[in-house]
Design a binder for these strands. Structure first.
Length: 486
RNA sequence: GGGCCGUUAGCUCAGCAUGGUAGAGCAUCUGCCUUUUAAGCAGAGGGUCGCAGGUUCGAGUCCUGCACGGCUCACCA
């Protein structure tokens, strides 16, 4: 087989290297410079000696001289190797090293006649022998299954894949900086929870042996973060993984990274401001502009963002009064006319939700805050003053995508208990995503939670939009896949 | 979970409508080559065509099932 013969070829070279007394897995190596710095600082570095280390990604042998490209993780730099400088080690390089091998080398910086900044190698050291052939140099690794399964190959072969992860890391660091600057404390709350909550979703279930207890992987940290505001932590946030046992799609992964923020003595209007300022800050830091190209259109993220109540948006985009959907016969008729399929049991809440998600939101370029939601859809949000049917809740929409969810938190333990009981009834009726009763949380509210604004943002989706990708998997370091059957 | 599409050399892809001994480029190997950059020139090796059945004298190609993946619908952020 070809793979075998190629591996044997590399195996043969590895054995030959050992015969020559060259250790094929070596290290460390004292690196003095990184590729982008050598290129940027050429005028100062010309003629100077530098030491670099990285993976050989291209080799061009021209008889008694050779060129190679080294990828050091930050960039690529060309190497120039000559038989007269390197003596007998020159043939070691040309005969026994391969694309994919990791080496360290030092030499002087110069420019070739074509103007490329290059290191004229004085000495090199093999650090790691690669036993498998890398993906093709020109087309890279295209096969999406291989790209996600062997993500390390994707990162080696496709610079956009690497850039996406760098962007992700940078954005998350910037979110932390933004919140630290506003005196929010980053906290850690349980991922393993005896009662899951804070969202409507099916959980993953696991089991603790010593306690002989079923535990759920959190679907959201919400109820614990609110317990912290009860405990006197007035500005908290958490960035972490949530787990939802739902389908996988270009905008859903079973584990995803969410930001949740809680600010005591604030409400959802403050959270709107926090949201637009946060995302505008990210755009400024990353693109140096409020105008950002997302999903094929330019979006202006400069605050303040448009704010549309559900009443307004239903009038504008659906041409109906939202309350008219409380008449289920009308709702059924309307959904049918617009060929919106509803698999769940039709109710006032599901009708609103379906029209919003399938009909209205995809049309909204944004950025826009949709606000004031029906209470039935929001078991943890606070009612609008004097109006039990509506809650103070909003969702930020960007390029037709729901980026998150926020509300004035429900602090009244009596009302919270009733909402839980209603959810519990839905669960009894077979709604697997209904919120379970959490007595301990209600108890916490009975001790008193300050008025609080809460915000959740799906960071993966935000990163996806900033990365100009159309699938979450492109910005998730290791996307969830079914293991290959043997 | 449903529908549609895909799976051929290490990688990127042809070949399949009309069945007849498996192709190209890159990579690899051999030879030549001291400023190339998808280096070049000459030659060579490399395949249970995703897996299992079926139809057929004959299947990469047609049919069925399965696996994995992508898109999409459904659910959710």
């Amino acid at each position: 087989m070809s793979e075998e013969s190629s591996e044997n070829e590399r195996q043969r070279k590895l054995e030959k290297l050992q015969e020559l007394g060259i250790e094929p897995y070596n290290g460390p190596y004292p690196v003095t410079h990184r590729a982008p710095l050598i290129q940027a600082g050429f005028s100062e570095l010309e003629g100077q000696s530098v030491a670099v280390a990285g993976r050989l990604v291209a080799i061009r042998v021209h008889g008694k001289a050779a060129f190679a490209h080294l990828d050091d993780g930050e960039g690529r730099i060309q190497l120039y190797l000559r038989a007269d400088t390197l003596a007998e080690t020159y043939t070691t390089f040309t005969d026994l090293l391969d694309i994919g091998d990791i080496i360290g080398c030092h030499g002087t910086v110069f420019k070739t006649r074509t103007g490329e900044v290059t290191i004229s190698v004085q000495k090199f050291k093999l650090l790691t022998k690669s036993l498998r052939e890398l993906p093709e140099k020109w087309h890279g690794l295209k096969d999406v299954e291989l790209r996600y399964r062997q993500r390390y190959l994707d990162f080696i072969a496709n610079s956009k894949a690497r850039q996406n992860i760098h962007l992700r890391i940078r954005m998350i660091a910037l979110v932390r900086r933004f919140l630290e600057d506003r005196d929010f404390l980053e906290v850690e709350t349980p991922i393993l929870q005896p009662i899951y909550g804070g969202a409507m979703a099916r959980p993953f279930v696991t089991h603790h042996h010593a306690l002989n207890l079923p535990l759920y992987l959190r679907i959201a940290p919400e109820l614990y973060l609110k317990r912290m505001t009860v405990g006197g932590f007035n500005r908290v946030y958490e960035i972490g993984r949530n787990f939802r046992n739902e389908g996988i799609s270009s905008t859903h992964n079973p584990e995803f990274t969410a930001l949740e923020v809680y600010q005591a003595y604030a409400d959802y209007r403050d959270m709107m401001q926090l949201t637009e300022e946060l995302i505008a800050f990210l755009a400024q830091q990353i693109f140096d502009s409020y105008r950002v190209s997302m999903a094929g259109t330019e979006i202006n993220l400069e605050p303040p963002w448009e704010r549309l109540s559900l009443q307004q948006v239903f009038r504008m985009h659906a041409g109906i009064e939202i309350e008219s959907l409380q008449d289920l016969a009308f709702a059924r008729n309307y959904l049918g006319q617009n060929s919106i399929r509803v698999e769940k049991k039709l109710s006032w809440g599901t009708a609103v939700d379906e029209i919003l998600k399938k009909w209205i939101e995809p049309e909204l370029k944004g950025p826009v805050f949709l606000y004031d939601y029906p209470t039935v859809l929001s078991p943890l949000a606070k009612n609008k003053p004097g109006d039990p049917d509506w809650v103070e809740r909003f969702q930020p929409i960007l390029a037709g995508i729901e980026l998150g969810n926020a509300f004035s938190e429900l602090a009244d333990p009596r009302e919270q208990r009733i909402r839980f009981q209603r959810q519990h009834q839905e669960k009894e009726k077979g709604d697997e995503e209904a919120h379970p009763m959490d007595e301990d949380f209600v108890t916490a509210l009975e001790y008193g939670m300050p008025p609080t604004g809460g915000l959740g943002i799906g960071l993966d989706r935000l990163i996806m939009l900033f990365a100009q990708e159309e699938s979450l998997r492109e910005i998730i370091t290791f996307p969830t896949l079914r293991p290959k059957a043997l």
